[in-house]
Simulated scan of single mutants.
Amino acid sequence: MTYSIIGSGSVGKALASQFARHDITVGIANRRGPGSLVAIAQELGNSVAPMTLAQALEADVIVLAVPFESHRDVAKAAATWHDKVVIDATNAYGVPLSDLDNLPSSAFVAKAMPGAKLVKAFNHLPAGVLAQEAGTAAGRRVIFTSSDDEGASATVAALLERLGYAPVSLGKIAEGGQLVQARDKSWAPLIFQDLFKPAN
């Protein structure tokens, strides 16, 4: 299984640091090219590899860590999204529902990536928290997921376990997934909730 992160802002870098912390190889890409990512890779270590966008899109599991509006540009850059697992870490706060065809934001993203198996995750915690250790004295930090594809959900849950998190499935995107998706200028009730699952 290969992994990539598209986006090198605060969220993308925070997630890259978690891969590096657990010695899981991950590519990272942005619109400026690999040269702009050398400093991040040097800071985080050999597990993080700067890539072109085209290279990052070849990964089996792709983390979408760009501003919500930029998902269209990423979508157009792939020749095909068939069978790709896409982790949507974006937030559509402030985007009018009419601009989303009145769909949940992740369902709207999925429409732009036909054939992709989309999983909502990582978007409910601020970047500063995502960069912290997943495991603490209080237990493992919870990451909520939602997806319309059970296989993709299982793939992402397994990755979250490897990263030290406690995955909690909310079910389908349009059902429980609404609990972590901003709507217009309202934050969903689980966004910013930093919850922990005690160790067994």
Rank of each mutant, 00 (worst) to 15 (best):
T90E: 09
P104C: 11
A152M: 05
L125H: 03
L159Q: 06
Y93E: 10
A79G: 12
H22K: 10
S70K: 13
H82I: 12
A92K: 13
L179Y: 07
A14Q: 01
D101T: 07
A89S: 14
S106Y: 04
S70G: 09
P189F: 12
S147Q: 06
N46I: 06
A77D: 10
L97E: 14
A158F: 00
P96L: 12
G151I: 07
A154T: 12
T25N: 07
G7W: 00
L125K: 02
N200Q: 12
K76Y: 01
V142D: 03
P167Y: 08
G128D: 10
V38P: 07
L160I: 06
D88Y: 07
G176I: 06
M113Y: 02
D148E: 05
A79D: 13
A39S: 13
N200M: 08
A154Y: 01
A131Q: 08
T90N: 14
L179C: 09
G164S: 10
Q132I: 01
K197N: 09
A127K: 04
S169G: 11
V129G: 05
F122Y: 09
R32E: 08
D149E: 08
E58Q: 15
F192M: 15
A152F: 01
G94E: 11
R21L: 00
L190T: 11
Q42I: 07
R140G: 03
N91Y: 13
A199D: 14
Q178L: 15
V11C: 01
A41E: 12
P126L: 06
K185N: 15
A14V: 00
S147K: 03
A49K: 15
A78T: 10
A29Y: 01
D194P: 02
R140A: 13
S186N: 13
G164T: 09
I143F: 02
A131S: 11
D194Y: 08
T2R: 01
G27H: 02
Y3W: 05
A56T: 12
I173V: 15
A78C: 05
P96V: 13
T52F: 08
A75I: 11
A49E: 14
A16P: 00
L170G: 11
H124T: 07
Q55E: 15
T145A: 08
V95E: 12
